[in-house]
Nucleic acid binder design. Sequence first.
DNA 1: GCCAACGTTGGC
DNA 2: GCCAACGTTGGC
Length: 154
Amino acid sequence: MKQYWLMKSEPDEVSIDDLMAAPQHTMPWFGVRNYQARNFMRDGMRPGDGVLFYHSSCPQPGVAGVAEVASGAYPDHSQFEEGGKYFDPKATPEQPRWISVDVRGVKKTALLPLSEMRQMPELEDMLLLKKGSRLSITPVTPAQWKVITGKLGS
DNA sequence: GCCAACGTTGGC
DNA sequence: GCCAACGTTGGC
């Protein structure tokens, strides 16, 4: 059963344009350092799952495009890069802590701003919109996916 | 830059 | 195992 997700990215780091410009429109999703988000990737995601690509920490936060999960989970290389931003001294290749999946961009869309999503009654139960929610990866229900992708147009 | 909310760490 | 202190996220 295909599932749906929302994944946050700071456009200064990786924007929807960056994703669409990558070879095969595909990039590894690395740097997740939250156990809940990791577990969603590890236990929930399957290749082909739908992804709402969300721009966060920017002037206009919101859904910026549609993507899909393009691989299973594998160890996040950045946890081993000593001196790097995402280095984790407690992680070893034998016992990795953090994982990545590949994400393939499907299309860039007109931005659906967070402010607009907050005004849509159908979305009031979205985890993204819950007060204090900071998770970088959250599940999206099929109904929410339908409403949002409908709004995004083609 | 502010600050609310949440997660993690570490002393006890 | 509790919980205070600290760090981070992310909208505004």
